[in-house]
Simulated scan of single mutants.
Amino acid sequence: MPGTAAEMLKTTRSELAPNPNANPLVPLVASGRASLETLAALALEQHQVIPADRRAFLHLAQRASEEPAAAGFFTMLAEGEELAAERLGAFTEACEVDEERMQAYEPLPGCQAYPAYISWLALNATPTDAVLAITANFATWGTYCATIAQGLRTHYGFTDEACAFFDFFAEPAPALEEQATAAVQAGLDTGRLNTGLAYSYGRLLQAYEAMFWSSLG
């Protein structure tokens, strides 16, 4: 593995990048072929994922008391999930999902495997290992969100407000990148980072990410 944090993050993202053809749903949204029912399911699943991830990130931040850079990274992630939650409602409304339907919805196991594993990492992984794994996965998620936002505007007539949830994750986050780099570098300097474990965690996260989309698509 490369010797610096920046090199390690770049290499891990590259090695864990999914097959471009592995996601069955995003191309459907991009071309306008996904049904409104499918988009509604995406919104409903995210209503489960976002608060679960936020709590997991807060727990990781708390566990990283001796790793301030990692603690800062997870605090930023938790704050981001809170902002994302504020934007999710407009997308949900655009998908014609009301409160009654939301309360009655039964989440798909394949979609909830990802947040379940994030919670597993929060309990079992060292915070620095989790930083590397999660950062590698976020690059994939951000790319998907950018494509979805464009498709929603082009083919479904969704407003900027309705697309804001996806725009938020699609935007570059240089401050978060700097924090991740600092956390990984601190892990290398202190010997807390187990690159083999971190890579394994990242591989599983990418697999659960793919499972999320295939369950919807």
Rank of each mutant, 00 (worst) to 15 (best):
A149K: 10
Y117V: 04
G110N: 04
T126Y: 03
Y144F: 14
N137C: 10
A90M: 05
T143M: 11
S119L: 08
G89Y: 05
T126V: 13
Y105T: 05
P115S: 07
L121T: 04
I134E: 03
F91Q: 01
A104S: 14
A139G: 10
A116K: 15
A146Q: 14
A133R: 12
E96P: 00
A125T: 05
C95M: 03
N124V: 05
L88F: 09
A122Q: 02
T147H: 11
A125H: 04
L88P: 05
T92N: 00
I134K: 07
A104G: 07
Y117A: 05
E99Q: 13
D98P: 13
L108A: 06
A130V: 03
N137L: 15
I118Q: 00
W141K: 12
L123F: 09
Q150H: 13
A139N: 08
A146G: 15
Y144R: 15
V131N: 11
Y117H: 14
A149C: 09
F138Y: 12
A149I: 02
C111E: 03
Y105S: 06
E99M: 10
L132S: 04
P109I: 01
Q150G: 00
V131K: 13
P127I: 02
F138A: 02
E99D: 13
T143F: 07
A90D: 07
D98M: 08
A122M: 03
D129T: 07
A90E: 09
A125F: 10
I118C: 01
A139H: 12
G110D: 02
A90H: 08
Y114S: 06
Q103F: 10
Q103D: 14
Q103R: 15
T128H: 10
I134N: 08
A136Y: 07
A104D: 13
Q150W: 10
Y105R: 11
F91S: 00
G110Y: 02
F91C: 00
A116D: 12
N137Q: 15
Y114W: 15
M102W: 12
A122L: 01
